[in-house]
Design a protein around this nucleic acid. Sequence first.
DNA 1: TATTGTTATACTCTATAACTATA
DNA 2: TATAGTTATAGAGTATAACAATA
Lengths: 165, 165
Amino acid sequence: MTRAEDPKLEPNKAQSGVSQYNETLDGLFGYHLKRATNVLQLDLKHALKPFDLRMLTYTALVLIVDNPGLRQSQLAEAMDVERPNMVVIIDTLESRELIIRDRVPTDRRAYALNATLAGRRLCEKATMAVKQHEERLLHQLSPEMRQTVIAALTLIRKVGGGVAP
Amino acid sequence: MTRAEDPKLEPNKAQSGVSQYNETLDGLFGYHLKRATNVLQLDLKHALKPFDLRMLTYTALVLIVDNPGLRQSQLAEAMDVERPNMVVIIDTLESRELIIRDRVPTDRRAYALNATLAGRRLCEKATMAVKQHEERLLHQLSPEMRQTVIAALTLIRKVGGGVAP
DNA sequence: TATTGTTATACTCTATAACTATA
DNA sequence: TATAGTTATAGAGTATAACAATA
């Protein structure tokens, strides 16, 4: 029993189950951006699941691995995450002994974040998995297309950063 | 007091306050996508605030305005939202008398969603505001660039829809 | 006085199971 | 039995205020 009584409601129903009911939304850049991001995030979630990492914990781990000695406040700024929310992310990584909080001798308020060997290894494996998953989703996009998209996204970020709320 | 003791940590600090600490993440398409989406979503949030609409309520309103008689389940599918979560969104719009739930005579389980005059008017005004906000963020992108990006995002969505979890 | 990390809290979005009333 | 809408609930992500220790 299909629900095709009203043909207007199913203009281009894809095999994926995604329907298009609209024109207004299709005219909005942000709508396309959000939908595609959701798809990629969902895929990323599955890619990270075997490593018991989520988007935020993975991103934090990558940044710590690549920037030894990073402070929590710097990490929070780099990830656009509020400091209070950063704490639980760091707690999670630390409890799994993927990173450690080292006291900074010159500023006893702060912690210098460093990845453990296990953290670096997990990060490497996870990144490989993430890249594989991404490639599966992006294989239809030419290198030029990818470059253009990333350039556009970077531009948006720059403009947005300068726009007052 | 700047925090530039470690120059490696601030390779290209922008005026926006956004720092780049990384190479691994910059190689990930999804990272750029998420960051840009965050910027656009934040801007959209501010654009919709005067109308007391959020991203989800706005999207639902648009779809109902453009597709009179839509069922809740169809709306949920179109928005990639679970049916239970759809209920509260519809409740919100209905309590503000922007839409109404009409019983479907041929299927008394279902509701046909229809926008009120107030709903259509608010939708129109909100859409104008959203487009203005978007234009401010996207004015640096040429029409060709936008087309390419939207084409790429659509491709990702299609591929992602067909990828098994 | 300002900053780092922290606690507590609240709101939004998301996801699942189970119920009701219809079909 | 299957579906439409609903309820309840739990998990993430996000945001703000306020605190202790330190600068």
